[in-house]
Structure formats: structure tokens, C-alpha cells
Write a protein that binds this DNA or RNA. Structure first.
Length: 550
RNA sequence: GACCCCGUAGCUCAAUUGGAUAGAGCAACAGCCUUCUAAGCUGUAGGUUGCGCGUUCGAUUCGCGCCGGGGUCACCA
């Protein structure tokens, strides 16, 4: 519908001799009284023309060539808005196209031929996934789904590090818990991982190895503990992600950057370009060249690289692997590292504009009205797995997507549990199930009219306000997808689908679908099917189920 | 101290990137099932958008200064 008006208004502007270089923007007004779509082009033009905006609007409206069967009203309002109202038949006519596209309605070819990588979760294998990782999994996977919907070739990637101090601590913690199974006086390392999951790993270790590790040399035993714990935790992590319907294409190990010499290459290249130098026994990256407030150490005086170096090397590999767009999804705690990585990428000669960083704020968990402090070290933290146990995968995914990523997300466990029936996700799924039920009823036993070929449906019979309102909202689906694509704010999808469900419930309440008037009944069944199509397409992107009955 | 995010109805959050009279869901109150799913619908009430300046036709949105909450500032990841 926007496209339709864009053509009409551009033509009018051309007639008037106004430059059409500006991109026309049509918006859906907040108030229904202001029509279906509105444009502020007259006000924008007025500024440069130094004319009265309402006068400019008048000229444009005068030059417009609109067919009365498509547009019922054009109005100049307020300071100079031009408001358009479509005829009901113009709207409902498009339902046929929607139905013909079916499961593909809302898809586009905007990303066709482009490779895009979405990196998310990327938790190191030192413990179970937290609730915060859950938000990241939901956001990342939903964006990835949406990008696929736009035609991109999407790679879902998980970056992890299984080396270094944290892994040594994991090994020591596991080892200590294991020994404690035989001798409970054995001490636990002071800053070890306190969580019960370490006990589970130790238990599993005993099941597999018996007491054999006790007799081994400690260093050897620790080495074994490390890889055992890592493997154990990764299986858990993958299992939980699978419960949420998230599947990664690539697990990228930071260690491989070392073994393949990529780390050394980056240092060399930066040195060659004069962007790295030695000082105080360390290697520094000239981040100030790229606007940072101070230079950064990339190799410590101990010879060990800081996390920045592999991060930069990793991003360089992303470019080398030929991705056209690179999406990084990080928690707010990583915000400070981003400028350094982007500077590093620029330093190596790549276009940092291709890196799209999505930062999401934290999740705070409420339990019994109290905030749960989550720390991997301390024993008290709720895992993603437990959260799914309590509220189910659909609710978890939906809740994490529902809020703007830049907002802190409050997740009240008690509420989510108690409210499992009042849950917003059920509201949407219920609409879907309700339609499925209507369609079953209509097709069953020949009592009601059957839904025949879309082509024969007379959508112009839909003249009730509730019908037209619903149809209009359904047709906004592609716009919603594109909007999310342009701003990476996935919460618009649940919000939009909520509007769809609300419009449907209203329609359902006011009008019976299966009635004696066969032609009208067909049109309403078509409207129902169109609604079901939009809902299930939206659910597919959100990664939640579309129940046929509830 | 510097930088980032947030501050909107009693609570949790929206607001199409600067648009017209700031909207939903819970919670409260009042209604609606002999019918294709009441996990639904309708109505009432609830606001100085943290505070103060500024930018302009127009500000919840942009700029500056405060106040409050969270986060980040290492040769930690």
C-alpha cells in the first residue's frame, strides 16, 4: 500500500516540478481519524521552498491522480499532513495475494545473494547457560530467522574459548569435587566454581573412571578433568539450546586462532603498518589512531595476548570468510570492548561499517518478589535450563524478544509460572488455535461451506469495520519485517502479532464466520486463513509453536 | 571521575527513529457465553513522559545541565 502511494505522490511531485530526490515517507497515523497512511512531504518541502506547508500540500493533492475505487479520501490536516484513506475493497482485494503467497508472505529478496553471519551466545564452557544467555539466544536466533526470511544466506556462529585461567579453574574445581567424593576433607580451591553443577560433573567422572584419577599424577588428572568438564558442559549447553530450538552452524574455537598462526599474523601486520609498538615489555595497539582515548595492550609482558588480540583476529577471519554483513550480539558487559575490535578491523584494512553490533541489556530475575543475584562463582543462580523447565520454551523465547533490547528485562519467575494461562504468548497462540478450530468446523461434515480456491473468493464482500481493520493489519506484516531488518529491534514482531491477534479476536467476537450466506462465509474463511498465515509466519520467525488446538 | 543503557498509568513495558489527542498487558471496577474455542470481547478509571533550559511549525524522541537506577572503564574474558 505504501508502494502504491509512493508511485502516485512521486508522479504528482514530478508534475509540479519538485525534486523527487527525497525519499517519501508514509506512516500509519496513531489516530484512525487521520486515515490509513499519512505523509509529511509537504512540510518538508515547505521548508526548502519557503512556502506555507498547507499550500504546498494543496498543490500536491491537486496534482494527484487517484482512482476512487482505491482511495476514498485525501485530506490535508494539521500543519500540513496529507492523509490517505483507502477503500475497503482496495484493502481486501489484496488478501488474495496474501493467501497465494501463503508461507512465503512477508519474505523478500532484499538479502538475496548476500552472506551474513550472526554471532551470539558465545559462552565459554565453564558453566551452564544463564538466563542472560537465554536472552541472547532468543534475540540472535530470531534475528537470524528474520534475515533468512529476507533472503540472506545466514550462518549462526558460536565463539568460545576453552583455554586460559578460567579453564584451569574449572579443572581444579572439578578435580577437587571428584576427590571429595572419596575424601570429604579435601579442600576446595578458594576462588573455584561453587555451583552444584561441578558436583554433577565429578559424579559423572566417578561413574566413568571410578577412582582411577586419584592414583594419577595430579597434572595429568587435571588435564583430564578439564577436557572432561568441557565436554560435559558443552553437551549441556547444546542440549539447552536445542530445547529452545536454537541450532548453530559453526562453533568457532578461539584456540584455533593460535594454532593456525592467525594471532601472529595480526601482530605482524599491525607492526608492518606501524600500528603496533613495544613498550614496557608489552605490545601495544595504536587504538588512538582510530579515535580511542588510549592505546591498548594486545600482548602482555608475560608474552600472553590479551582478549583483544584474538577478538580482532577472529573478526578478521569473519571478513576473510566473505561475509557481507557481520552481526555481533553482545551483552551490555561487553560494550567497552567493541570500539577496540572495530578499530582493529579498520587497522587491518577492512570496512568496519559491515559489522553490526547489537547490544542487549541485562535480564534481572525476580523470585518471590526479590531480585536473584546471578553469579557463576556463587552457588545461587538460575540456569536457562531451569527457566525452560518452569515456563516452557515458547514463553521463554517470547518473553526475551518482547522487550526492546536496549531495555533491562525483568523476568518475574513467580508471575511467569502462576500466569502460565495469562501469558501473552498464549494470547497469540490462542488466536491461531481458534482459527484452526473454525477451519476444521467449516470443513467438517459438509455442514459449513468449504474453503475453495482463493481465486473464487469475493473479498469485496468484507465490508464490516472489524473485517477491514483486520485485513489492513495483516497487510502490514512485510513492513514489520523490513522495519526490524533495518533497525535490528526484534521486539516489534511480538508487538505487531499482538495487534493481529487482538484485531482477529475482535472480528471473531462481532461476526460469525460459518453462516448461510455462502459467498460471505467464503470471504470470512479466507480472512481467517490469511490471519492464520500471518500468525504462523510470525511464529516461525520467533521460533515458537503454532498450535492447531489448545 | 569518564563513557554506555534506562527513567513514560499502581506494576511490567510500547510509541513506526522529530509528527497530530502518549498506547497495550497485568492489577482495580462494571458488563458480555443456549452459538465456529470465554486462554476471548466491551466499557470505566488511571499521566506535568524524573526535573530545568534550549533547538522548530511540532519534542517521550534531538542538544546542554542536574537527579535517580543499572552497566563498563586492567598487561582480567
Amino acid at each position: 500500500m505504501k508502494k502504491f502511494l509512493t508511485e502516485k505522490v512521486s508522479a504528482a511531485l514530478a508534475t509540479l516540478g519538485y525534486r523527487d530526490g527525497m525519499t517519501l515517507v508514509f506512516e500509519k497515523p496513531k489516530l484512525q481519524a487521520h486515515g490509513d497512511l499519512t505523509t509529511n512531504v509537504a512540510m518538508l518541502l515547505a521548508k526548502s521552498l519557503k512556502k506555507n506547508p498547507r499550500a504546498v500540500a494543496q498543490e500536491i493533492v491537486g496534482a494527484l491522480k487517484l482512482e476512487p475505487e482505491n482511495v476514498s479520501k485525501v485530506e490535508i490536516a494539521g500543519p500540513g499532513f496529507i492523509n490517505f484513506t483507502f477503500t475497503g475493497s482496495f484493502v481486501t482485494r489484496q488478501l488474495g495475494t496474501l493467501l497465494a503467497q501463503g508461507a512465503a508472505f512477508g519474505k523478500s529478496t532484499l538479502g538475496a545473494g548476500k552472506k551474513i553471519q550472526v554471532e551470539f551466545v558465545s559462552a565459554n564452557p565453564t558453566g551452564p547457560l544463564s538466563v542472560g544467555h537465554g536472552r541472547q539466544a532468543a534475540v540472535g536466533d530470531t534475528l537470524a530467522n528474520l534475515l533468512q526470511w529476507m533472503g540472506y544466506a545466514v550462518t549462526r556462529e558460536y565463539y568460545y574459548n576453552n583455554a586460559g585461567r578460567q579453564m584451569r579453574m574449572l579443572a581444579e574445581s572439578t578435580y577437587a569435587r571428584y576427590i571429595q567424593l572419596f575424601d570429604d576433607s579435601h579442600p576446595f580451591p578458594e576462588d573455584g566454581y561453587q555451583g552444584d553443577y561441578i558436583r554433577d560433573i565429578a559424579e559423572s567422572l566417578r561413574t566413568q573412571k571410578g577412582g582411577a584419577l586419584r592414583k594419577q599424577d595430579k597434572e595429568q588428572a587435571l588435564e583430564f578433568c578439564k577436557s572432561f568438564a568441557e565436554q560435559f558442559l558443552f553437551e549441556e549447553i547444546k542440549k539447552v539450546l536445542a530445547r529452545m530450538g536454537v541450532k548453530f552452524d559453526v562453533f568457532y574455537n578461539e584456540d584455533s586462532l593460535y594454532s593456525s598462526g592467525k594471532i601472529q599474523e595480526v601482530i605482524q601486520e599491525l607492526r608492518t603498518k606501524g600500528l603496533a609498538y613495544d613498550q614496557d615489555g608489552a605490545v601495544w595497539f595504536k587504538a588512538t589512531t582510530f579515535g580511542a582515548e588510549k592505546d591498548r595492550v594486545i600482548v602482555k609482558s608475560t608474552g600472553e595476548p590479551t582478549y583483544r588480540l584474538p577478538d580482532i583476529a577472529y573478526h578478521r577471519e569473519k571478513f576473510r570468510r566473505g561475509f557481507d554483513v557481520i552481526v555481533d550480539i553482545f551483552g551490555a558487559d561487553h560494550i567497552a570492548t567493541i570500539p577496540d575490535v572495530l578499530a582493529g578491523v579498520k587497522a587491518l584494512g577492512y570496512d568496519s561499517e559491515k559489522v553490526k553490533v547489537v547490544i542487549h541489556q541485562f535480564v534481572t530475575l525476580l523470585k518471590d518478589g526479590q531480585q536473584v543475584k546471578m553469579s557463576k562463582r556463587a552457588a545461587n543462580f538460575v540456569t536457562l535450563d531451569e527457566l525452560i523447565d518452569e515456563v516452557g520454551s515458547d514463553a521463554v523465547r517470547f518473553f526475551f524478544i518482547m522487550r526492546s533490547i536496549s531495555s533491562h528485562l525483568e523476568f518475574d519467575l513467580n508471575l511467569a509460572k502462576e500466569q502460565s494461562e495469562n501469558n501473552p504468548v498464549y494470547y497469540l497462540q490462542y488466536a491461531h488455535a481458534r482459527i484452526a478450530s473454525i477451519l476444521r468446523f467449516a470443513e467438517g461434515e459438509g455442514s459449513g461451506p468449504k474453503l475453495e480456491g482463493f481465486a473464487s473468493i469475493k473479498f469485496e464482500l468484507l465490508r464490516e469495520q472489524a473485517e477491514i481493520d483486520l485485513a489492513k493489519i495483516l497487510l502490514e506484516f512485510p513492513d514489520t519485517i523490513e522495519r526490524i531488518h533495518s533497525n535490528f529491534e526484534p521486539h516489534h514482531l511480538p508487538n505487531y502479532l499482538n495487534d493481529v491477534a487482538a484485531a482477529f479476536h475482535r472480528f471473531y467476537h462481532d461476526h460469525r464466520v460459518v453462516i448461510d450466506d455462502k459467498a460471505l462465509s467464503q470471504a470470512r474463511l479466507g480472512l481467517c486463513l490469511a490471519t492464520k498465515t500471518v500468525l504462523s509466519n510470525g511464529f516461525a520467525i520467533l521460533g515458537i509453536s503454532a498450535p492447531e488446538r489448545m
